[in-house]
Design a protein around this nucleic acid. Sequence first.
DNA 1: CCAGGATGCGTGTCGGTGTGCCCAAGGAGA
DNA 2: TCTCCTTGGGCACACCGACACGCATCCTGG
Lengths: 185, 185
Amino acid sequence: MQISGSFGRPAPVSVAEVSFHAGNKTLALDRKDLAILAELTTNARASHTELANKVGLSSTALARRQKTLEDDGYIQAYQAALDLAQFGLTTTVLVRIALESQSDEALKAFEAEVVKCPSVVRCFLMSGTDDYILIVLARDIQDFERIHRTELSRLPRVARVQSSFALREVVNRAVPTVVFGEAKR
Amino acid sequence: MQISGSFGRPAPVSVAEVSFHAGNKTLALDRKDLAILAELTTNARASHTELANKVGLSSTALARRQKTLEDDGYIQAYQAALDLAQFGLTTTVLVRIALESQSDEALKAFEAEVVKCPSVVRCFLMSGTDDYILIVLARDIQDFERIHRTELSRLPRVARVQSSFALREVVNRAVPTVVFGEAKR
DNA sequence: CCAGGATGCGTGTCGGTGTGCCCAAGGAGA
DNA sequence: TCTCCTTGGGCACACCGACACGCATCCTGG
């Protein structure tokens, strides 16, 4: 009963909060859509009625909006978040890699192999010195030595590898809070 | 019908595949547990029967295992993955930040403010030169200029800010494939 | 030989989901 | 100003499915 909105009334506050030009049509999300997205980011398995109570809608209206959000591609998937620390993966390493050559063939060859590395979770092609930055998850420093030997050093066309260990993770968000805007009020 | 396991038999393949020392008790996950986790990483809203068919279990056994995985903390949450490109956030920037001082008070002050930055999705305290690395999401380069001005430049105790733009994201995994091991066979 | 653990089956109840229908508000046009 | 149309919301209902329980069975280890 923490919702103190105006029930029974068709919600005159449905003003467009955010508008984007996605594809070739202009879409708009009001604050209720943002509230739905914010809630689903936390509880992906919430039922329609449960979400409806939190947002301040009926289950019917919520089901329609949720389906629209899915069809329009705002919601890509529903996925379980695993606690990687439970698997012993407590060490995050940022790896900077410079290639011997920036030729298209060298980039292709490198990328074709880096996607196979089992410990790499992210890989960016960076501007500037035309190198890559990887985020690698390891059990500990000794385990990273193994990864460096069995995965990273086998990548083709690599000229230089520079590793930095993360001592602590201060922020870890899947979605920047700027997306939800004023929806959380 | 892609499952060709031994039905009706209590599954003699339940050998421990992975074992961890989580907390103060030793837990073990067999390949069916890993298959459940791998599937839930993709379809968090899958029903018990749907998962049971894919893994090769009855819905009863699967429900028990899933609840165990949740209670033991392997599954942290079920969350919807948003397509940030639909929100116009197509530019990823890696920001390296060095502080004026590495004193405890300076670190605390910086971290207390960086968690409030709406465009920052990740922030690591790094080893080496004792600086931070942020991952920032922006709409475009002009938008990053605004973020730099309104969010980053207001962070306390900052001596140097160095930004690198990501031209392309080659790998983006929530979970390293090393976790699932041989479960996907 | 006997617990202990894990699986599969069956059943019942509860809840979610989807549909149809009506209503309210706002905008466009005559 | 009046009317029509569109959009979005709420209510009621019915159906299908998920979920949780109890019980029998089978393997394993002591």
